[in-house]
Amino acid sequence: MEFAPICVYLVISLLLSLILIGVSFLFASSSSLAYPEKLSAYECGFDPLDDARSRFDIRFYLVSILFIIFDLEVTFLFPWAVSLNKIGLFGFWSMIVFLLILTIGFIYEWKKGALDWE
């Protein structure tokens, strides 16, 4: 029931953004029909040399995978942090074991150079 304002807010913001984009199309002139170069992709004045959707660096992929791992770690930390007073010392040390395993993984990838150059 507390989420109803969020749903309504989503719908209203969506409408607002669509209206804002639509407003610019009201003023669209047809000069793009006269100059088709306007519509070509930007490449400092040249024609695009090859397809834009070519391969990209694998380091971006690695960063995303690392983000997933650590984001899941943060997700596990959320309920632990909220309930720490009820799970006491045992709960604390269990989470430390989990964090230790992830830290060992982190040290491994640091040493291997997965965090370098980027």
Binding site: A41, Y42, F56, R59, F60, V63, S64, D71
Partner: peptide
Amino acid sequence: SKYAFLGSLRSAAQMVSYEV
């Protein structure tokens, strides 16, 4: 467009790194 794609990848990787 190659520039847009590269820029967005770098921007996304940066945002994602500091999310953690």
